[in-house]
């Protein structure tokens, strides 16, 4: 039981990170119907910007951790958004209205480019970071000494994720930008006719996705304490799997899918073998898709002749 609770906590933490990345995938897919393959690498860049900011703040002698984290969060979100915007502007916008596979190939190329760019600029070695947020609670002590621990970092991750999700749902549901996004999602041409700047809306979608990926990157860095230029690939695939599992195009679906993938992975590694955790995640995806072809919360697509 104690072991189960511990794994539940770990799974939810990991799932939150996946969920944050998955939102970027699902929003972009919802609005322009493309798999943004470079999104995982945007997440990786977010992690690197966070690392550099933390090191800079450390050199500047800022020792009050909450403030340092807040500054890091803002800097990472801003700069990573700039990357998201540039990628969209350079690699996807010229291909708007082109055939379906063109943006996908462009995105794969962008992903290869970004990985090698960071590898060249920052080196191929893994980057370790000393824990910034330390400590936590322990409870439910078992007679044999096993305790369930809930670290402050895990609390921060879950709280930040919930806060961002809430803010985001409000943004989509209440603001004019959210309305414009939903309009573009339904019918881009019609949205343009009623005076919505479609290009700007799409750019902002990428910016928001990148900002969330930056948060995920920062959380990843602080939680695991080690990053390299390659983390974006696997995290990106997992997050995309999460988005598909939840029903691509649906925001709550992305969060749910992220949590599920995180939980599946954690529990599989805990109770079965750690080597095959990726196989388990993909296997469950295939199973779900066979029975629910549009994911858990996806809307069934009506095909018209």
């Amino acid at each position: 039981m104690e072991y189960f609770v511990q794994q539940l906590i770990n799974g939810i933490t990991l799932g939150s990170i996946y969920g944050l990345i998955a939102i970027g995938y699902t929003m972009v897919y919802g609005i322009i119907g493309m798999i943004n393959f470079a999104h995982g690498d945007i997440f990786m860049i977010g992690a690197f910007v966070s690392l550099i900011t933390i090191l800079l703040l450390g050199m500047a002698g800022l020792s009050w951790i909450p403030l340092a984290l807040l500054i890091t969060l803002i800097v990472a979100m801003l700069l990573t958004s700039a990357y998201g915007w540039t990628v969209e502007r350079l690699a996807y916008r010229p291909l708007r209205g082109s055939f379906r596979l063109a943006p996908l190939i462009s995105a794969i190329g962008m992903s290869i480019f970004l990985q090698n760019y960071v590898q060249l600029a920052q080196g191929a070695r893994v980057k370790p970071l000393q824990p910034v947020v330390q400590g936590g609670f322990t409870f439910m002590e078992r007679p044999d000494g096993f305790t369930v621990s809930l670290s402050y970092m895990q609390i921060v991750i879950v709280v930040v994720t919930i806060a961002l999700m809430a803010a985001f749902s409000l943004l989509i549901a209440r603001t004019s930008l959210g309305r414009a996004q939903r309009a573009c999602e339904q019918d881009r041409r019609m949205a343009a006719l009623v005076g919505i700047n479609v290009d700007r809306t799409i750019s902002l979608t990428f910016v928001m996705g990148a900002a969330l990926a930056a948060v995920a990157g920062m959380m990843f860095l602080l939680y695991y304490g080690v990053i390299d230029f390659y983390i974006g690939f696997l995290a990106g695939i997992k997050a995309f799997t999460a988005a598909v599992l939840g029903g691509i195009g649906s925001l709550p679906g992305a969060m749910l899918g992220g949590l599920l993938i995180g939980l599946i992975e954690t529990f599989w590694s805990a109770y079965f073998t750690i080597e095959y955790k990726d196989v388990a995640a993909f296997g469950i995806l295939v199973l779900v898709l066979i029975f629910l072809p549009t994911g858990l919360l996806g809307k069934p697509e009506v095909e018209k002749v």
Partner: peptide
């Protein structure tokens, strides 16, 4: 290689 993929597609 990655850059070329993007450029050719664009």
């Amino acid at each position: 290689f990655g850059g070329a993929m993007v450029l050719i597609m664009v």
